[in-house]
């Protein structure tokens, strides 16, 4: 027993602290790396300037693709009941028509997509339609960029517009004219 007690007294009670700095550094670096400063994403739009007395310029009926979204999120595409997943193809057909079909736009630069909502339309339904419309334009731009020999539209913008500082021809050829219709005057 006496020998056992002696052994206990001799034991070192210090914790090695040499690696403490490394542990702290590791923690610091872990948090530095994993912290993401969240970037805001969303659908960008430009509102029309406030209306003056003068009326907006007249638009030919065939150049305008009218999309109506009602109170429960149902769609009316050029007066025909439709669904959200059909919007994209319809917009592409309308914009890239080049005057072939008399029901669709004369040229891509004249094509206008008009989205009209009522005041009770759910916001999510509106965003769904707007998203599909923008996706249609994104796909048109992508295929136009591929036609010019680029991998996709993002590549085109990166190489031609940002590096060489040339005008964005794809966007000029297919300007995304998405119009948010004026709300009806409140009764």
């Amino acid at each position: 027993m006496a020998g056992l007690l002696k052994k206990k007294k001799k034991r070192e009670s210090e914790i090695p602290t040499a690696s403490m700095a490394d542990i702290a550094f590791l923690l610091l670096i872990f948090f530095l790396v994993t912290t993401t400063i969240n970037v805001d994403t969303g659908i960008g739009m430009v509102l029309p300037p406030p209306l003056d007395e003068q009326d907006p310029p007249p638009v030919r009926e065939r150049n305008m693709l009218k999309i109506l979204v009602n109170e429960v999120g149902q769609l009316l595409l050029e007066d025909n009941p439709s669904a959200v997943n059909l919007v994209r193809d319809e917009v592409k057909k309308h914009v890239t028509n080049n005057g072939v079909d008399p029901n669709y736009a004369e040229s891509p630069t004249k094509a206008i997509i008009s989205i009209k909502t009522s005041s009770q339309t759910p916001y999510s339904a509106y965003i769904d339609v707007l998203d599909e419309t923008w996706m249609a334009y994104f796909e048109i731009w992508d295929s136009e960029a591929r036609r010019l020999g680029f991998q996709n539209y993002a590549h085109y913008v990166n190489e031609v517009v940002e590096t060489q500082d040339r005008p964005n021809e794809v966007r000029e050829r297919f300007p995304a004219a998405i119009s948010i219709a004026e709300p009806d005057p409140q009764n």
């Binding site: 805001d40 969303g42 029309p48 909502t117 339309t121 998203d131 709300p183």
Partner: peptide, 26 residues
């Protein structure tokens, strides 16, 4: 879940203020 009415009202105010660049955050 919001309705478009209030969004449109805010948009009209933004147009009057001249802040035309908007972004629907999604």
């Amino acid at each position: 879940t919001s309705e478009m009415g209030i969004v449109q009202e805010v948009e009209q105010e933004l147009r009057q203020a001249g802040t035309l660049r908007i972004n629907y955050s999604t």
